[in-house]
Design a binder for these strands. Structure first.
Lengths: 254, 254
DNA sequence: ATACACCTTTACGCAACGTCAAGGTCAATA
DNA sequence: TATTGACCTTGACGTTGCGTAAAGGTGTAT
């Protein structure tokens, strides 16, 4: 089966310009050129285009795609992981922007307007803080938020098997925590085991683990009543107990 | 106080090229040009540049900034709200990308690799579904996720006053719902009032309200045990009752 | 006088195509 | 057979917000 440029274009859902461009930059050359100078593509090119579009959909740049599709031994998984990191950073940036835009809207609508200069100064300072501060409340809010996001965004992504594992883990945490709570010592062996299980459970939801984030999340269990209600369901005080256990486990002082 | 181009540039933390570009596109012209053709900026221009950079930090395009700073009566707040919408869309897109990248990584790492074509087909289908399907489970997941994100991202952003209002609303929902639950009819007046209050409450968290989203969130109260635990705290069955009330309120059939 | 920092305009480059423009090719029809 | 209309070709400019030379004039301290 052979395709002219438009046939291939409509098959793949791209423009002919795109295909000419891909030819131009050398990531997808036609199988041959006919006597009239027309580009003719074959099955191999169809497959290759699919690969290209696949990575393109993921937002990978064409130069990276070029490496992937031209070098057959290229580590596609690693490239994807790196790309993923970039996406996460981008989202962080976006979240920051949105938060600041929200704040600005609130300011301009609500209050007696500050002078532009004041606004600008405060804003600038805030941006720097957001970007540079590494610990403390700011970051805890962030981690807490991330955790909730992740639990929603990533849970859909689990295999059936993983889902079973994480459910089993949650059950273990539950029983261990209940026993530990009866003993009453958040530094005790059982409580620390519960904290450890909780950490393992977390790794199913978080892209990477940090003690600060773990401690922050634990604090959120106490601060957010929806989580408190869940953990205190059988034994009131369990949420606080779990937080204390985790803070000891992570060596956090707050 | 007068500034040459480099003085102003270092003062504001931008390049001289940027200032020349701003001159070129007409958003910041120097106060005057001296006898040697040098650009000379005054205090007014300093202020204006601060405004420009302020909006630029928020990711607003220079053409929009031009409208904002040149037309003194321009509705800056409205522009910001529109910009905010764009940012939210971008984040949606990003979340989609991240989810798909995650899936791909999981596939390539975990399982016997599918043929590229298979992968591509499934992937393509998924993207289309994500983008085009408007109702059903997919969208419910999405709305549910948004709600959780929003509650975390926006709550920090409320004024003290708003916070009081939303807390009072939550309390009202709680008492109204408890009474309605005793009557037992999710279509009854009290239950519908609770649903209406819940809608009002939601508007503090959601950028825009839709019946589908409201109904979807209600379903999540039943599906996610953390929320169920919260609503069933005093009267088991309240979460289901609230869901039913809201589904009647929104005219949802599921 | 020379060096050196500063200023000017002009113009290409960047990512990934969209969008004309000007012209050749192919198959079907009047 | 000539014409139409759909399809193909190669340029080449426009998009965003500057970075980065290049080529040349100005200011001032030594």
């Amino acid at each position: 089966m052979e395709y002219t440029i438009q046939k291939l274009a409509s098959l793949a859902g791209v423009s002919t310009r795109t295909l000419r461009y891909y030819d131009e930059i050398g990531i997808l050359k036609p199988a041959r050129i006919n006597s009239s100078g027309y580009r003719i593509y074959g099955q191999e090119e169809v497959n290759r285009l699919q690969q290209i579009l696949f990575y393109r959909e993921l937002g990978v740049g064409l130069d990276s795609i070029k490496e992937i599709v031209t070098a057959p031994t290229f580590d596609g998984a690693r490239a994807l992981r790196e790309h993923r990191e970039k996406l996460l950073e981008k989202r962080e940036q976006l979240d920051l922007l949105i938060t600041n835009v929200d704040k600005t809207i609130a300011l301009t609508e609500g209050r007696i307007t500050m002078s532009n200069k004041e606004k600008f100064e405060g804003f600038k300072k805030k941006m720097v803080e957001d970007n540079e501060k590494k610990y403390g409340k700011e970051i805890r809010d962030k981690y807490g938020k991330e955790s909730v996001e992740a639990s929603n965004a990533k849970v859909m992504n689990m295999t059936e098997e993983q889902y079973q594992e994480v459910t089993a883990l949650a059950e273990q945490i539950h029983t261990t925590l209940a026993e530990a709570f009866k003993k009453g010592d958040p530094a005790g062996e059982l409580a620390q085991k519960a904290a450890d299980l909780h950490k393992q459970w977390l790794t199913y939801y978080w892209k990477d683990y940090s003690k600060e984030a773990h401690a922050g999340l634990a604090q959120m269990y106490v601060d957010d009543e929806r989580f408190t209600a869940y953990y205190d369901k059988e034994q009131p005080g369990t949420a606080v107990f779990l937080r204390d256990s985790i803070h000891i486990y992570t060596g956090q002082k707050n």
